[in-house]
């Protein structure tokens, strides 16, 4: 028996840190600000080591004051810097959403193209574990709704590093939605070298298949891959698309897949109402109607604030068994 050399792995947390460190080395105008990013090394230890390397001028601990520091970030971006603003979680970005939408996203248009806002708003999004309703929400559809923003959500370490570097270099405001439960997971390491970057707006086929298309982002990609393994045992060949970017959306990759499989299930941890799945369904229905053998199905969180009790939380958040069931439904409905 030959022993294959295992590929090098890193955690998503390390990949994010490496992305910021590399971009900060390359561009002296890039700096990080947010709650606990410096001395504490990040509430989730994402910014580990950055204060030591870059100093307190470029790694700035803020007071707990989201509206304020989001606006300070926007002003710094108008003033020629490239801020990375960390929200301890995107739940707290609700305090600051006015600055993100009204100031960061709209000013380029309102200024007739004069005032770009090169800023990244990043932090964990979606459900963690047992932290209750106010700390467990996916804001993907909220931000993806708005013109003037780019919205990105990585799944693995390659995504995390390549997309965050792209976001930092992007001249537009980018909302970068991470996931707390993925921070500690190990994945294949991104290619070495600081030039590695992934384009925003391009999805990735994580697993090719011919029977049904699963489209998701962030942690749902992992559950989709689990579901695909499970379904393979029953002879169902699933294609898994990792969206990576929610705005702009890589419709071409999705459409090409649906043209092949004729079945689609969308996946997200957000609420069903006006969610990312709603948009995907509408787009697929408008453009791919003749290629569909069944209506697009959505796997989402339940339409309730997230409960604390373990059993209720389990019922509210979708995981791979729900995906397996949805795939069976979409095929048997055909």
């Amino acid at each position: 028996m030959t022993v294959e050399k295992m590929p090098e792995t890193i955690t998503v947390r390390e990949a994010l840190r490496d992305a910021m460190a590399e971009e900060m080395r390359q561009n002296p105008n890039v700096f990080l600000m947010g709650e606990e990013v410096a001395e504490y090394q990040g509430a989730y230890k994402v910014s580990q080591g950055l204060l030591e390397e870059f100093g307190s001028k470029r790694v700035i601990d803020t007071p707990i004051t989201e509206a304020g520091f989001a606006g300070v970030g926007v002003g710094a971006a108008f003033g020629g810097l490239s801020p990375i603003v960390e929200f301890m979680t995107f739940n707290f970005s609700m305090q600051a959403i006015d600055q993100i939408i009204n100031s960061a996203a709209k000013t380029l248009y309102m200024s007739g193209g004069q005032m770009g806002c090169p800023i990244v708003f990043r932090g964990p999004n979606g459900s963690a574990a047992r932290v209750g309703a106010q700390h467990s929400q996916c804001f993907a559809s909220w931000y993806a709704h708005c013109p003037g923003l780019k919205v990105v959500s990585p799944y693995n370490a390659i995504d995390a590093k390549g997309l965050l570097k792209a976001a930092i270099r992007d001249p537009n405001p980018v909302v970068f939605l991470e996931n707390e439960l993925l921070y500690g997971q190990r994945f294949e390491a991104p290619p070495s070298g600081s030039d590695f970057i992934l384009p925003i707006g391009k999805a990735h086929i994580e697993r090719p298949g011919k029977d049904v298309t699963l489209v998701g982002f962030s942690i749902m990609v992992g559950y989709a891959l689990e579901a695909a393994e499970e379904l393979a045992k029953e002879g169902i060949d699933v294609e898994v698309i990792n969206l990576r970017s929610l705005r702009p959306l890589d419709l071409e990759t999705i459409f090409e897949s649906v043209r092949k499989t004729n079945h689609c299930v969308t996946l997200e941890e957000g609420f069903p109402y006006a969610g990312i799945g709603s948009e995907l369904s509408a787009q697929i229905m408008e453009h791919m109607f003749d290629f569909l053998d069944a209506p697009v199905l959505r796997v989402t969180a339940k339409d309730v604030p997230l409960p604390y009790a373990a059993n209720l939380e389990r019922l509210a958040i979708p995981r791979s068994p729900e995906i397996v069931q949805a795939v069976k439904n979409v095929l048997y409905n055909a």
Binding site: N29, F31, K57, A67, G68, F69, A70, G71, V72, G73, V74, G75, A76, A77, F78, G79, G80, L81, P83, D98, Q99, N102, S103
Partner: peptide, 18 residues
Amino acid sequence: IVGAQVPIGTGLALAHQY
């Protein structure tokens, strides 16, 4: 948006200092 320019101006000041 009433008052929203205050943090933005503060950020412009941060850029001056930086």
